[in-house]
Design a protein around this nucleic acid. Structure first.
Lengths: 342, 342
DNA sequence: TTGTACGCGTTATCAG
DNA sequence: CTGATAACGCGTACAA
C-alpha cells in the first residue's frame, strides 16, 4: 500500500502539499491538487487512518460494550448507534460481556489501549462496577446506556424502569387484577430487573395488596413452566403476570398455551421492552415500550457532545404502555379458584 | 496518558528494555522487569495500540459488514464472531448496510483505511458487487458469510439455501399439500431469497405441481395480510405457505390468527432461519434451522486461517428441518374450497 | 501557495 | 541482558 510520499513524488510536489490536498483542499491551487489526485489514483493510494490517529491523538472510534446481542433491545439500539455514528464520521468497536464483570474489565482495558475517543456501555451493576471505578479516574468521555443510578460524574441515558413497571402494574390493577406476580431471569445479573421489581412492589402496596416474591427463572429469555405452575395452578392463584422482558413473556405465553392455559382468559401476561415482534403475535403482547432506537441515538448524541468538550445532562427517556391482547379484565368468579371440578 | 519513555525513565532503564518487559518478558532480568512494572503502575501507563499498529503494520482488528442487526440471524452470528475474535486477541469493527450497495462501498473504504487485518462481510448480491470487484484487486483476507456463489477467489461460508427450501417444500408435499406458495420481502435486495425460491420451484416441478409466483411483501419482516388474502381466501387457494424468513412467518401467523384463520388447520406455514424464538411460540414454528452461531464461528475461523497465510476452503454448513406445530397434514376435503357455505 | 522538519508511541535491528 | 537509533505514515507549525 503506497504512502503519501510516493504520491507526492509522482505528482512532483512535496509531501506536505499532497497531505494538504486531502485535508485542506482549499489551501492548494487547483492545478496541483489535480496532479495529486491523479497520482493518488494511479498508485492506488489510500489514507492510513492508523498513522493519522497516532498523529492527531484521535481515533474517531467509539467503543460500545453491551451485555448481549441476543436480545433485540440491545441489537436494535446498537443498529441505531452505528448508523448515527457513521453519519458523524465515527466507527464502532463492539464487545459483549454477557453481564460478567470480569469480561467487562477485560473489554474495557482493551478499548482504552485502542484509544477509543469515547465509550458507550451498559454494565451489569452500575453501583458496584470495577469498570466505572477505573473510568472515574480516566478523563475519557463515557455514556452509560440503560444504567440508571450511576455514580455521580457519569452521564446516563436510560428509562425510569421503576415507574414503568409501576404503571404496568397499575394497568393490571385497574382491570380488576389483585393477585399479580412478577417473573424474571437470574436476578443478580442486572440492576434494571430489581428496579422493575421495586416498581411492581410499590404499585401493589399503594393499592393495598401484597406484593408476591419475585419468581425467578433459570434463563433470561426462556421460560421454565414447571417453576411457574405452582403459582397458577393452585387455588387463589395469580390472575396476572408481569415479565422482566418481552422474550420471556412470549416464551411464557407459548408454554402456557401448550399446557392448555388460555391467555389472557386464565392469566394476563405483560412484557417489558417493546420489541417489534410482540405486536405481530396473537395474542399481541401488552408491554412497556421503551424507545430502543431513540435510546441508542440519545446515547450517541450525548457522547458526541462530551467528545466536543460540551457538558451533557443525564437523560431519562419516555416509555409508553403498549396495550395488547395478552391482557384481559380479571374474571371475578374464577379468580378464587382456577381449577374447579364441576 | 504516559508513554513508554516515561516509564523507562522512572524505572531507570532504556525505552527498549521497558518495551521488552511487556512484549518479551522472558528476555528481561526479573529484577529490572519488576522495576518496569512498578514504574508502569505508578504512572498509570497503558500500551498504545495505535502506535503499535502503525509500527507492526497489523491492527488485530477485523471488519464486519452486515445487512442489518434487526434480524436475529445476523446479530446472533455477530455475537458468536465477537466472542471468538476476542479469544484470539482480535477486536471487531462493525457496520450495517441495509442491503444498499452504495453504503457497502462507503463502509468498505472506511475499513480499508482503518487497515483492518481482515474482513467478514455479507453483501447484497455477490454476483454484481462493486465491493467484491474492489477487493479482488486488494490482497486483504476476506470471508463472505451467507453469500454463496461468490466470484472465484473469495472464500465463502454459507448454507445451501436452494436445497434447504427444496427440502422444506418436500416436507409439505409429503404431508399431502399440493397448492403451496412462497412469500418474501422485497426480492431484489438479497440473492439468498432467489435461491430459496429456486429450491421451492424445483421441488414443485419434481413433484409434478405448478410453482406459484413469489408473493412479495413490502417489508422483510412484517406481513401485509391484504397482499396475502387473495391467495388464501379464494377457491382452490393455498394450503401451505413457505416464508423467506422466520420473522415474516411469525408475523403472518399472527395476522392470520387475528383474521380468524386457523394455523395450521387452514394454512400450514413454514419459516426459514431457525431463530430461537420460533420454538417457544404456540403453534411452534416449523422452519429451516440454519446454524447461525456455527456459521459465525466458521467464518471467523476461516478468516483467521487466511490471516495466518493458510488457505481456507469454501464451506457449506448443514441445516436441519425443524418440525413444528405450524404445519399439519393437508385436509383432503377442504383443500378444494376453504370457504364453504353449509 | 509551497516546502522543511519535527513528533505521535511503538517495535525491530543492531551494537555493546 | 541492555541500550541507542531508525523506521511506521501522517499532520502541522513555521519558514520561505
Amino acid at each position: 500500500m503506497t504512502d503519501l510520499l510516493s504520491v507526492a513524488r509522482l505528482a512532483g510536489v512535496s509531501r506536505a502539499t499532497a497531505a494538504r490536498a486531502f485535508a485542506e483542499p482549499e489551501k492548494v491551487r487547483e492545478s496541483t491538487r489535480e496532479k495529486v489526485y491523479a497520482a493518488s489514483n494511479t498508485l492506488g493510494f489510500r489514507p492510513n487512518y492508523v498513522a493519522r490517529q497516532l498523529r492527531t491523538q484521535s481515533t474517531r472510534i467509539i467503543g460500545v460494550m453491551l451485555p448481549t446481542l441476543s436480545n433485540p433491545v440491545f441489537s436494535e439500539q446498537l443498529q441505531a448507534m452505528e448508523i448515527l455514528a457513521r453519519q458523524h464520521g465515527y466507527s464502532l468497536m463492539i464487545a459483549t460481556t454477557d453481564y460478567h464483570p470480569d469480561r467487562e474489565s477485560v473489554v474495557l482495558e482493551n478499548m482504552l489501549r485502542q484509544r477509543v475517543d469515547g465509550l458507550i456501555l451498559t454494565v451489569a451493576d452500575a453501583q458496584h462496577s470495577p469498570c466505572l471505578d477505573l473510568l472515574s479516574r480516566e478523563a475519557l468521555p463515557v455514556v452509560l446506556a440503560h444504567n440508571p443510578d450511576a455514580p455521580s460524574p457519569f452521564v446516563t441515558v436510560s428509562m425510569d424502569n421503576q415507574r414503568a413497571m409501576y404503571q404496568a402494574t397499575c394497568h393490571l390493577l385497574s382491570l380488576g387484577h389483585q393477585r399479580i406476580g412478577m417473573i424474571a431471569g437470574p436476578i443478580q445479573q442486572s440492576d434494571r430487573v430489581s428496579l422493575r421489581y421495586q416498581g411492581y412492589c410499590q404499585a401493589m402496596n399503594d393499592a393495598g395488596y401484597l406484593p408476591q416474591p419475585l419468581i425467578e427463572m433459570p434463563h433470561h429469555t426462556r421460560a421454565n413452566i414447571d417453576v411457574l405452575l405452582p403459582w397458577i395452578a393452585a387455588p387463589a392463584s395469580l390472575t396476572a403476570l408481569l415479565c422482566s422482558n418481552d422474550l420471556l413473556a412470549i416464551s411464557i405465553i407459548g408454554n402456557l398455551q401448550r399446557s392448555g392455559f388460555n391467555v389472557p382468559q386464565q392469566l394476563s401476561v405483560v412484557g417489558f421492552d417493546g420489541i417489534q415482534l410482540g405486536e405481530m403475535l396473537c395474542p399481541s403482547l401488552c408491554t412497556i415500550e421503551q424507545p430502543q432506537q431513540a435510546l441508542g441515538e440519545a446515547a450517541l448524541t450525548s457522547l458526541l457532545a462530551l467528545i466536543s468538550g460540551e457538558v451533557s445532562p443525564c437523560r431519562t427517556l419516555d416509555f409508553t404502555l403498549r396495550h395488547g391482547e395478552s391482557v384481559a379484565r380479571a374474571q371475578i368468579l374464577s379468580s378464587f379458584n382456577t381449577r374447579e371440578i364441576p
